[in-house]
């Protein structure tokens, strides 16, 4: 298997996993939606991500999923893809659309870098 194909599959599996953890209101079909390679390639500032993460942790716990999914240890590309799906209003939850809507691509990358391994 080509490395690129394997990577795409990984992203697709990640999206399935994410979709399963979303609320009923978020159960949109995002399987054919993707983020541009140059956005996925942005290397995030982890320390800035740690600061930005405090906006997330009002609702999301890092390791315990409630009615709202936990967000620690998500693969970086899955995280970036999910946040851009909200930013671009592909996913419908208005809280997440609003929060992601004002995050720049660099800030999303910073959050992804932090949440990939928040310890």
């Amino acid at each position: 298997m080509q490395q690129g194909a394997f990577k795409s599959m990984g992203v697709a599996l990640g999206l399935v996993m994410l979709a399963q953890s979303l609320h009923a209101s978020d159960a949109s079909d995002v399987s054919d939606w993707s983020v541009a390679e140059d956005i996925l390639a942005i290397e995030g500032d982890r320390e800035y991500g740690a600061y930005l993460s405090s906006e997330c942790t009002t609702c999301h716990q890092t390791e315990t999923s409630t009615e709202i999914p936990a967000i620690a240890y998500w693969p970086r590309e899955d995280f970036v893809t999910a946040l851009h799906a909200y930013k671009d209003k592909v996913r419908p939850n208005p809280v997440m659309q609003m929060i992601a809507g004002r995050l720049s691509a660099e800030e999303i990358a910073a959050l992804a870098a932090y949440f990939e391994n928040p310890e």
Partner: peptide, 21 residues
């Protein structure tokens, strides 16, 4: 009704989240 139910359930997650925070 489904969306309203999801909104309520989201509030339960928020309560658990903010009190943990």
């Amino acid at each position: 009704a489904d969306l309203r139910k999801a909104t309520y359930e989201e509030s339960l997650g928020w309560y658990a989240g903010i009190t943990s925070d």
